[in-house]
Structures are given as structure tokens and as C-alpha cells.
């Protein structure tokens, strides 16, 4: 039997966030994009005490196996990002669009009040491959757009996470027996 989850609580601020956390790539990276969003509760109120983690492949679809997220040491792509939300529930990342027919970024959100994290994915708008992606295709049609980022500028996207309610984001099962 696996060790059960417990909430991250409100007091992780000195332990989990770190200076380079939001930088999957440095902002000077020629292909860098920015993803920003908010984490919102069932009343539409922002969470000031959530932690968002992302994990993704590089532009060629390869997985980073060399570390470098905590202290980059010359590597320009770590694959992993971590950002605590600010007082208005905002998080952001500097990253690149991963490779593949339907590029996506895996997301975990931790927060006080979440006894276990929620898992979702960020897909990108206008990607022909989205239509045949096996994970996205398994999501009820009327909720698929909760997994697709909104393009805000040539290199910037918005992705809000609604934990609950009318616009609730699709979350994936994390327990596999």
C-alpha cells in the first residue's frame, strides 16, 4: 500500500519555491514563451497559497535527463518548473513549446485545502494534432477547452486552473492501483 497524500498546507514558502523555479528556460532563450494564469476556487476567488509545477519535453520531444532545474549550471532547458501563486493567485513560467503532434505540458497544483494535488495538462491552441491526441480525446467534448491555453500574444499564453465550479478544469486520475 502506498503512502497516502496530505495537504501541502499554507507554510511551504521557505521550502518549495526557489529563485529559478519559473524558468524552464531563461527568458533570453530564442524560442522562449511565457505562460501565465491564475488558480481559482469554486467561488471564483484566487488562491494566494497554491504551488504549480510543470514538467514537459523539449522542442524535439526529448525528455531532459540531466537535471538542472534547481541550479541550472549551464543547461538552458530543465523540463521542470515550479511557481507559487502570488496574493492575486497568479503564476507564470518561462518555457518553450514542447515537440510532438499535440504539444502539451503536464501540470500539478498543490494547495492548502487540497488533500492531494490535482493533475492536468496544458495543450496549445490551433494544433491539428489535438484532434487525435489520445489523452485529450478521452476528455468529454464540452470540457476539452479547459485544457487548451489561450493565446495572448505571439509568444504568450494564458492557462487558468479552476479547481471547482462551472468552468472546472479537467483533472486526471493519479491513482493506478
Amino acid at each position: 500500500m502506498s503512502t497516502p497524500s496530505q495537504t501541502v498546507g499554507p507554510f511551504f514558502g521557505y521550502a518549495l519555491p526557489y529563485a529559478d523555479g519559473p524558468y524552464v528556460v531563461p527568458e533570453w532563450h530564442p524560442d522562449s514563451i511565457r505562460i501565465r494564469g491564475r488558480v481559482l476556487d469554486g467561488a471564483g476567488e484566487p488562491l494566494p497559497d497554491a504551488l504549480v509545477e510543470i514538467w514537459q519535453a523539449d522542442a524535439d520531444g526529448n525528455v531532459a535527463r540531466g537535471g538542472g532545474a534547481l541550479r541550472r549550471a549551464g543547461k538552458d532547458f530543465s523540463g521542470f518548473g515550479r511557481c507559487g501563486t502570488d496574493a492575486a493567485g497568479n503564476f507564470w513560467f518561462s518555457t518553450i513549446k514542447p515537440g510532438g503532434p499535440a504539444p502539451y505540458i503536464a501540470v500539478l497544483v498543490f494547495a492548502r485545502g487540497l488533500l492531494k494535488p490535482v493533475a492536468t495538462r496544458i495543450y496549445f491552441p490551433g494544433e491539428p494534432g489535438n484532434a487525435t491526441d489520445p489523452v485529450l480525446s478521452a476528455v468529454p467534448v464540452d470540457r476539452r477547452d479547459t485544457l487548451v491555453a489561450v493565446q495572448e500574444g505571439e509568444r504568450s499564453y494564458r492557462f487558468d486552473v479552476h479547481l471547482r465550479g462551472e468552468q472546472e478544469t479537467v483533472f486526471f486520475e493519479r491513482y493506478f492501483g
Binding site: G113, V118, P134, R143, E168
Partner: peptide
């Protein structure tokens, strides 16, 4: 703190391919 933050819809079982991140 859970009633306003707990998802209310069923979780989706992901059909991860072999190269899923």
C-alpha cells in the same frame, strides 16, 4: 478549506501513451 477547493467533477482516467511525459 476543502469544500471550495475540491474538484466536483469525476476525474478523467488518462490514456497515456508510452512516451507520455
Amino acid at each position: 478549506s476543502t469544500p471550495l477547493r475540491a474538484p466536483s467533477r469525476p476525474l478523467v482516467m488518462p490514456s497515456y501513451g508510452p512516451d507520455a511525459i
